[in-house]
């Protein structure tokens, strides 16, 4: 290195270029940091499940002729009310949309949640309390052998009716 070059490198007007040693040091440091962060993110991916234990959400409720016209049947395990009227079948989930308690159906057909007092009318619409949205109506279908099947993770419009012959 000549004296002239040396002068340029150290002058105030030119920022001295990074030396090879600086570059390698910085590259090593940042690769280590990036590797550590990525490893942490990768490890934290583990608790995020890709399969859920209740992945089969479709539940057989019974043959249509089991339920009389005008009846209301409660399935406590899947927290579901099944109604039958002249038009057909419909099902509503009694899980409160506020914080997941089970709302109780009153004699007048309204729903009342015991945990924080949310109230819903017969159509599941919010009538009072903190619930952010109405109770969820569930999709009903007929299985090939003619059973009524409810999809507990579905969300269809209020009072969606499944037509079914007796």
């Amino acid at each position: 290195m000549t004296a002239e070059n040396n002068h340029i490198e150290t002058s105030q007007r030119f920022k001295p270029p990074a030396t090879r040693r600086d570059f390698l040091g910085l590259a090593a440091t940042w690769s280590a940091i990036v590797a550590f962060v990525m490893a942490t993110v990768g490890a934290l991916r583990l608790p995020m499940p890709s399969v859920f234990p209740e992945s089969n959400s479709r539940v057989k409720l019974g043959r249509p002729d089991r339920f009389a016209v005008g009846s209301a049947t409660y399935f406590s395990k899947i927290r579901l009310w099944l109604f039958r009227d002249e038009s057909g079948f419909k099902a509503i989930s009694s899980v409160c949309t506020h914080l997941g308690c089970v709302a109780e159906r009153q004699e007048d057909g309204q729903y009342l949640c015991p945990c924080h007092g949310s109230r819903f009318d017969q159509t599941g619409a919010v009538k009072g309390g903190p619930a952010p949205k109405g109770l969820v109506w569930l999709d009903l279908s007929l299985s090939p052998e003619g059973w009524i099947v409810a999809d507990t993770l579905s969300d269809v419009g209020p009072e969606t009716v499944l037509m079914a012959q007796v």
Partner: peptide
């Protein structure tokens, strides 16, 4: 939903 799934490992309180 993401927070609930990470916390419970499911959609309901159960074994997970």
């Amino acid at each position: 939903l993401w927070q609930k799934e990470v916390l419970l490992g499911a959609h309901h309180v159960g074994q997970e």
